[in-house]
Amino acid sequence: MLEEFLGRYSYFMIAVLMTIGIYGMLAKRNLIKKLIGMNILQTAIFLFFIEGGGKLGATVPVIDPQLGNDPAKYINPLPHVLMLTGIVVGISLTAVALAFLINISRTFHSLDEDCILKEMSK
C-alpha cells in the first residue's frame, strides 16, 4: 500500500498542478493570468514526463566510464529529450502570446477579457 502510494503520489500531485493550470486558463479574466496558467500547465506536463521516466537506482544519463553502458545504471534519456523540445515549444508559445498581449493592450487598453469582449462587440 505504501509502495503503491509512493509509486504514484507524485502523479497525483502533478495532476493537481495541471488542474491548477487549466483553472488559470479557463477561469481567470486577466490575460496575463491566463498565460501564467498556461505556463503552469506546461511545466506540469514536463514534470509528468520526467517523473514517469525515472528509474530507481540509476544515475544521470551521461555515460560514466566507471559504470560502463549498462542500461540499468542510467535513467531513460528519451523523456528528457522530449521535454527539452517541450520546454522550447512552451517558451515559443509564451513569447507569441506575450506579443499578442502587448498588441491587444495597445488596441483595447485593457487586459481584462470581459472588457475586451465588450469593446469588440461595440
Binding site: A95, L98, A99, I102, N103
Partner: peptide
C-alpha cells in the same frame, strides 16, 4: 530577437 521585438513595445 524576441527581446528586441518585445522591448520595442
Amino acid at each position: 530577437l524576441l527581446f528586441d521585438v518585445l522591448a520595442e513595445g
